[in-house]
Structures are given as C-alpha cells and as structure tokens.
C-alpha cells in the first residue's frame, strides 16, 4: 500500500517552496514577469470582489425596481451602478441573480468544480470548493445549511442552482429587519459573500 492516506509532515512548507520554485522558473523563462502574480492578486483586492456584490445587494434593498431589474436582466442592472470596469469580465460574462423572499431560499453550488461570479463576489471561499459541500448540498441542502447555522423552515422552499454551464449565479439575500434607518453604505456592510451564495442570511449589525 502506498502512503495515499498520509500527508508529508512538511506539507505546507513543501508546497510553499514548490510554488515559489515554479513562479521563479516561469519568470526566468519569460512566461510571466516578476509582477504578474501580484498584478492578479492586486486586481482581486481592488477591482473584483465581494465589495461589488455588497453594493448591488444594498441597492436592491433600497430600490425595489432595481431589484426587479436585477433579477430579470442581471448584467444590464449591474451595469447601471458605478462599479469598476470589468463587471462583465472574467467569470462575469454571463451572470444571473436570484432573490430570496419569505417563501424561497436560494443556494448556489457547483457540483462539477467551483464556478463563481468573480467580478461581483471575488474568489470562492473554501467551503464552496470543498467536495463534501458540493456533494451534499445537491441532495440535502437543509441539513447542509443547518451546519452553517442557517435554519430554513420546512415551509420555505429551497432552490439549489448548480452552475454547470456559462451562468455564474449569486443570491440577493433578504434585507434584515430593523435596518430601515440605515443608509445604503451602512447596508453594504451587512452583506457577506456567504449571504450572496445562500449559506448565510444578512443580519443587522
């Protein structure tokens, strides 16, 4: 039997050295520059990230007509807002928003890989990429959501959206109660990536 069920003791140190060696070779051989990786990472810190999705959701909370347009034609509604260039860029070419309401809770999954709407949500968190989540959420979403601390009553229908082709999905969570006096920018702070994929509810601070 091989050591298939064991990890190297220096698992992380080894991977860290190996990825550094790979990046060094790619720079040496003229494939990438010494700034390429940081260029990508910087882009996800400032241009593509959940801060964009939070603005979209907060607008949907304060403007029901915008919310209706967002669900009917997501790219056109997103383009109305003053967001960075690239909202229809990489992994956002074809996006679709679904809105929660008292009767329906939406959950986004990708059973084949980890498709995620980069421009509005940035990069997928580990829970979304984990094979256990991807397997179980398809058959027992209520049990999975309970493990995230979200109890969806039996009477509320769950819609699970499997991202298996070109569409990148996200959820418009319900506006939390008791937030009537908050400004749009204060509302943005209540919107988490988890709430925009359906494994959390937006909560008043």
């Amino acid at each position: 039997m091989t050591d298939r069920f064991k990890y190297r003791e220096d698992r992380e140190a080894y991977s860290a050295a190996r990825v550094r060696a790979l990046e060094a070779l790619l720079i040496q051989k003229g494939i990438l520059t010494d700034k390429s990786v940081d260029t990508v990472l910087g882009y996800f810190e400032t241009k593509m990230g959940p801060f964009n999705g939070a603005k979209i959701v907060a607008r949907a909370w304060v403007d029901p007509e915008f919310k209706a347009r967002l669900v009917a034609d997501t790219p056109a509604a997103v383009a109305e807002l003053d967001l960075p260039a690239g909202m229809a860029g990489a992994e956002g070419e074809h996006m679709r928003a679904v809105a929660n309401d008292p009767g329906v809770h939406n959950l986004i999954i990708c059973t084949l890989c980890s498709c995620y709407p980069w421009p509005v949500l940035g990069l997928p968190p580990y829970w979304y990429k984990d094979p256990t989540f991807r397997s179980r959420a398809a058959r027992e979403p209520r049990a999975v959501l309970a493990e995230f601390g979200v109890d969806v009553p039996e009477s509320q229908q769950i819609k699970v959206w499997d991202s298996s082709a070109q569409i990148r999905w996200f959820v418009v969570p319900e506006r939390p109660a008791g937030t009537e006096s908050l400004s749009e920018s204060e509302l943005e702070a209540l919107v988490t990536p988890e709430s925009m994929m359906g494994v959390a509810l937006a909560k008043a601070a």
Partner: peptide
C-alpha cells in the same frame, strides 16, 4: 459528486 453519501460534516471555512 452530487448526492454522494457518507461524507460527514461540511467544512465551513470562509477564507
């Protein structure tokens, strides 16, 4: 993967 059983709890890591 969809529907596979016996996998135990999900990993709720948000990073």
């Amino acid at each position: 993967l969809g529907g596979l059983e016996g996998l135990g709890p999900v990993w709720t890591e948000t990073r």
